[in-house]
Computed example of a mutant assay.
Amino acid sequence: MEKRETIRLDKWLWYARFFKTRSLATKLVSGGNVRVNSNKVSKPSVAVGAGDVLTFVQAKVVKTVRIEACGTRRGPAPEAQLLYEDLSPPPEPKTKPGEFVPPVPKYEGKGRPTKKDRRKSLLSRFDLLE
């Protein structure tokens, strides 16, 4: 029987560009927030390989991915996307079809008053006192 190629879980998450640093990936796994083949994992050194299914939360979105390859380096994004197949359902649209979406209010230029505006307001206060 041929031994399958494996890699540390935290290293694979970093290679696949799910996390910016390996230490962030390690923190997520150590917190018990990752499942490998529906089993909770709390050690970043768990060996994963092709065919394993990972479930974890990233930026408040639950991700489910199947590992396609282990990878040898943290390469560019197109190379990293070849390491997995995304099984997550597509995100729900923010609005339903036919639903009214109010327009975004426009900036009217009313921000911090200028020095001239502040002087005017000070002068108008003195007029009220007399």
Rank of each mutant, 00 (worst) to 15 (best):
M1P: 13
M1R: 09
M1V: 10
M1N: 09
E2A: 10
K3I: 13
R4N: 14
R4L: 15
E5R: 12
E5V: 15
I7W: 01
R8W: 07
R8I: 07
L9R: 00
D10F: 07
D10Q: 03
K11I: 14
W12F: 14
W12E: 01
L13M: 08
W14K: 05
Y15A: 05
Y15R: 05
Y15E: 02
A16I: 11
A16R: 08
T21W: 01
T21R: 13
T21V: 09
S23Q: 10
A25R: 03
K27Y: 12
K27F: 13
L28W: 08
L28E: 01
V29D: 01
V29S: 06
N33D: 04
N33A: 12
N33R: 04
V34G: 01
R35M: 12
R35G: 15
R35K: 15
R35P: 10
R35E: 12
V36F: 07
V36K: 08
N37P: 14
S38V: 14
S38C: 14
S38M: 14
N39G: 07
V41Y: 00
K43M: 15
P44H: 02
S45Y: 14
S45F: 10
V46D: 00
V46H: 06
A47P: 11
V48W: 00
V48T: 05
G51W: 04
G51C: 13
D52E: 10
D52G: 09
D52Q: 07
V53Q: 14
T55A: 11
T55M: 11
V57Q: 12
Q58E: 08
V61H: 03
V62S: 07
V62W: 01
K63G: 02
T64K: 13
T64G: 04
V65D: 04
R66I: 05
I67C: 01
E68H: 12
E68Y: 11
G71S: 01
G71W: 02
G71A: 06
T72Q: 04
R73P: 05
R73K: 06
R74K: 00
G75N: 14
P76D: 06
P76H: 00
A77K: 11
P78A: 00
E79S: 08
E79M: 08
E79W: 10
A80F: 03
A80C: 03
A80S: 15
Q81Y: 02
L83C: 04
S88F: 10
P90R: 02
P90D: 03
P93G: 05
P97D: 07
G98N: 02
E99C: 02
V101E: 04
V104W: 06
V104G: 05
P105K: 13
K106T: 12
K106Q: 09
E108S: 03
E108T: 03
E108A: 05
E108L: 04
G109A: 06
K110L: 06
K110Y: 03
P113M: 01
T114C: 10
K116P: 06
D117W: 05
R119H: 04
R119V: 04
R119K: 09
R119W: 06
L122I: 15
L123E: 10
S124G: 05
S124W: 08
R125M: 14
D127C: 10
L129N: 11
L129S: 13
